[in-house]
Simulated scan of single mutants.
Amino acid sequence: MDTELSATVKADLLSIGSIRIDPALLPVQPTSLATAGPGAGGSSIFFRSGERRIRLTINELSPLRAVAKDGKVVLIKGDNVIARGMLEHPLCHCPEQAYITLSEKCVYDCQFCPVPKMQGGIKDSKKVHRMVAEAYATGELKAISLTSGVAVSPEKEVQRMVDVVKQLKREYDLPVGVSVYPTKHSSERLYAAGACEIKYNVETMNPEIFRRVCPDLSLQTVLDSLENAVDYFGRNRVSSNFIIGLGESDETVRKGLKQLTDRCVIPILRPISPHPLRKDAISIHRPSADRLLKLGGMLKEMLDCQSLCAEKSQTMCLLCTGCDLTPHRDL
């Protein structure tokens, strides 16, 4: 009998965040390579079991193993099989989406993020269109999601994003979601360009931690922009990454979740892992399974109180769910 991925098992897997995998299971282009945010540079797999999906970084030192057995992929912890399912093929970054990073570099020096250290390339519109076309040709594409670092300035990044969204909406009848650092008119402009969902990341709702880990950014600017975004995009169409593991207390998380959901914003509780390029910058503690379940349950209750539903999201992280314990999809 199949062992489907339960919420409890997924929380346990997320608390570890990595896996060893039999190379024989991997196709020619097996892994998703993250190019944005704290996980940039890491190769990973997507595993699906029942209605749930998880993304795990490939690490030969992981206590988890993925092997083939009886025509399935099984996940093993210690001597126990904890889930049976299948590997999913990512289109661009994740399954079912063309999730594309426009600028793989950033002028801001957030202490948990390796992107400023990596200083990757910038995709021009031709490359973006080629990537989307290749994903569309598979017949599996459900959404286009675009994110970006800040190569020069937030204003220039938003302008590039507006241009790309307009071009893609002329060619594809698909939902387009966007994640950028906000500017004064970014929500208005991106909505007018054709984006249906927006994500501005608060990173943490602890002001002291924010000042320490995002010294170049303004938490209040992000919060104001999120509230303004709801006026344009509407309920269930505005979200924000909320990192768990930077030293915040559960009470800080509770208060932060209430602030966001009261603004009709859907928070995404993102467990963080230390990156080698940032190992000496800050102290990072990957959250335990129990904590992820507790905070995820807390978030679900707050969303329900505001009649918000993560399951209605059409793009980006809330559609994928691979990196998080997502209310209404996992819980």
Rank of each mutant, 00 (worst) to 15 (best):
Leu308Gln: 06
Lys10Gln: 09
Asp231Ser: 11
Leu146Tyr: 12
Thr315Trp: 01
Glu171Pro: 03
Ile282Gly: 08
Leu303Gln: 06
Ile19Cys: 11
Glu140Cys: 06
Asp173Arg: 12
Ile58Arg: 01
Gly139Trp: 08
Glu4Gly: 00
Ile54Gly: 11
Asp2Cys: 00
Asp262Tyr: 08
Asp290Phe: 05
Leu13Ala: 02
Pro30Glu: 01
Ala195Leu: 05
Thr315Pro: 01
Cys106Gly: 04
Ser148Thr: 14
Pro95Asn: 12
Ala68Gly: 15
Phe46Thr: 13
Lys126Cys: 06
Lys184Asn: 14
Thr57Val: 15
Val180Gln: 00
Asn206Met: 00
Val128Arg: 02
Leu26Phe: 03
Asn201Val: 00
Cys196Ala: 09
Ser249Met: 02
Cys214His: 15
Lys72Ile: 00
Leu299Cys: 03
Ser153Asp: 10
Ser145Pro: 07
Gln159Cys: 08
Ala195Asn: 05
Arg329Gln: 12
Leu26Gly: 12
Asp12Thr: 15
Ala36Trp: 12
Pro114Trp: 09
Lys10Asn: 11
Leu325Lys: 10
Gly149Phe: 06
Ala11Gln: 08
Met302Asn: 00
Cys113Pro: 06
Tyr108Ile: 01
Met131Lys: 11
Arg212Ser: 15
Pro276Ile: 01
Ser32Lys: 08
Val107Thr: 12
His275Gln: 06
Thr3Asn: 10
Ala143Gln: 10
Gly297Gln: 05
Val180Arg: 03
Phe112Tyr: 15
Cys214Glu: 13
Ile16Lys: 12
Cys317Met: 14
Pro30Asp: 00
Glu155Arg: 06
Glu248Arg: 11
Ala36Asn: 08
Lys312Tyr: 13
Ala83Glu: 02
Ala7Cys: 02
Arg286Cys: 02
Arg189Thr: 03
Gln159Thr: 09
Lys127Gln: 12
Ser125Leu: 08
Gly322Asn: 06
Thr138Val: 02
Asp324Met: 06
Lys69Val: 07
Pro63Ala: 03
Leu33Pro: 00
Asp22Glu: 05
Asp22Asn: 13
Ala192Asn: 13
Leu303Ala: 13
His93Ile: 07
Glu188Phe: 11
Thr101Ile: 04
Val128Ala: 01
His275Thr: 05
Ile144Asn: 14
Leu331Tyr: 13
Leu325Arg: 09
Asp173Ile: 04
Asp173Ala: 11
Leu91Met: 05
Arg160Phe: 01
His328Phe: 07
Ser283Gly: 09
Pro30Phe: 02
Ala310Gly: 14
Ala143Lys: 10
Gly42Lys: 14
Leu269Thr: 13
Leu146Cys: 13
Glu203Val: 02
Ala229Trp: 03
Arg84Met: 15
Val67Ile: 14
